[in-house]
C-alpha cells in the first residue's frame, strides 16, 4: 500500500494524539505495580521491581467486591431503565400522531442543555425527603430517563422506512408487536452502543454519588478512588492507581467487545436522519 506525504502528516498527528490519550492509562497501570517510593522517585513507565502489594492493600483496606457491586448495580439500573424509557419515548415521538408532539419533543430536548449543577441540589432535597440519601438507589433514581437517549433513538427510528410499519399495520400488529418484531431488531446496534455509553457514564460518575453517599458500604469505585488521594486518607499513589486500573477494566472490556457497534452508530448518525 502506498502512503502519500499528506497522509503521513495526518498519521503522525494521530499517533501523537493517541500517545497523549493513552499515556495516563499506561501511567496508572505501571504505577499500580510500583512500590510507594518508586512511584514518587521514578517516572519510568516500566516498574523497576514489579509488585502486587498495591493490589493487596486495595483488597485489605476497602471492601472492593461490595464497592464493585454497588457501582455495577447503579450502572446496570441506570442503563436498563434509560434504554427502556428511551426506546418507548422515541417510538411514540416517531410513530404516534398527537397534538403538541413537536412542542413536547423540543421541550424534552431542551432538558439536555440544563447543567447538572442546576439540578443536583433540588434532586438531593427531593430524595432526602423521601429517604433515599446514602443509598445506591438514590443515586440511580433521578437518572432513569434521559433526553439524549430519546433524541438518538428517535433519529434511528426515523430512518426505518414507513412501508415496513405499514406492512405490520395491515396485519393488525399492535404497537408492542411492531416494536418487538421490527423496530428493536432494526436499531439493535444503536441500542447496544447507546447502552454502553450510558453504562460507562454512570460507571465513571463522581459528583452525584459524592453528594448522595455517606457511608463506605455504599461507595462506588470513583468514591473509593478518592479515599486514597485525599488529605485525610494520605496519598498512597500505587493503591490509587491500582483502584483506577481495576475501575477501568470493565468499561474497557465492554468497549473491546462492542466497539464495532459503537463506531458504526456514530459513523451512521451523520448519514441518517
Amino acid at each position: 500500500m502506498k502512503i502519500n506525504s499528506s497522509e503521513i502528516k495526518w498519521h503522525l498527528l494521530f499517533i501523537i494524539l493517541v500517545l497523549l490519550l493513552i499515556y495516563p492509562l499506561l501511567f496508572s497501570l505501571s504505577t499500580s505495580f510500583k512500590t510507594m517510593s518508586e512511584a514518587f522517585q521514578s517516572s519510568s513507565l516500566i516498574p523497576a521491581d514489579p509488585t502486587f502489594s498495591a493490589y493487596d492493600r486495595v483488597f485489605t483496606t476497602i471492601n472492593f467486591v461490595q464497592i464493585l457491586s454497588n457501582t455495577f448495580i447503579i450502572a446496570a439500573l441506570v442503563t436498563i431503565f434509560k434504554l427502556v424509557t428511551s426506546v418507548f419515548a422515541a417510538y411514540a415521538f416517531v410513530f404516534f400522531h398527537f397534538k403538541g408532539k413537536t412542542a413536547l419533543y423540543f421541550l424534552l430536548i431542551s432538558t439536555i442543555f440544563i447543567p447538572f449543577t442546576v439540578t443536583m441540589i433540588p434532586n438531593y432535597i427531593t430524595l432526602s425527603k423521601v429517604g433515599f440519601v446514602d443509598s445506591i438507589y438514590g443515586v440511580a433514581l433521578p437518572q432513569l430517563a434521559d433526553a439524549t437517549g430519546i433524541f438518538l433513538l428517535r433519529q434511528y427510528m426515523k430512518g426505518i422506512p414507513m412501508s415496513l410499519m405499514e406492512v405490520a399495520e395491515l396485519e393488525r400488529a399492535s404497537h408492542l408487536t411492531r416494536l418487538r418484531t421490527i423496530v428493536v431488531p432494526l436499531i439493535r446496534p444503536a441500542i447496544l452502543s447507546i447502552g454502553i455509553i450510558f453504562f460507562i457514564n454512570s460507571w465513571n460518575e463522581y459528583v452525584w454519588p459524592a453528594i448522595m453517599i455517606k457511608s463506605e458500604v455504599n461507595y462506588t469505585l470513583s468514591l473509593a478512588l478518592q479515599m486514597f488521594v485525599s488529605s485525610e486518607g494520605g496519598t498512597d499513589v500505587p493503591v490509587a492507581m491500582a483502584v483506577a486500573t481495576l475501575t477501568m477494566l470493565l468499561p474497557l472490556g465492554l468497549y473491546a467487545v462492542c466497539q464495532k457497534f459503537i463506531i458504526g452508530t456514530f459513523a451512521q448518525s451523520g448519514i441518517k436522519g
Binding site: P161, E166, E171, T181, L186
Partner: peptide
C-alpha cells in the same frame, strides 16, 4: 394483501419469516 413499491421486506428477517410475518401475528 399489499405489495409496496420498495417491497418493504424486513431486512432482518429471512425470506420465510418475511412471507409468514402476518400469519404468525394472526
Amino acid at each position: 394483501g399489499m405489495v409496496f413499491q420498495n417491497y418493504a421486506l424486513f431486512p432482518h428477517m429471512t425470506v420465510e419469516k418475511n412471507i409468514a410475518y402476518g400469519l404468525r401475528i394472526h
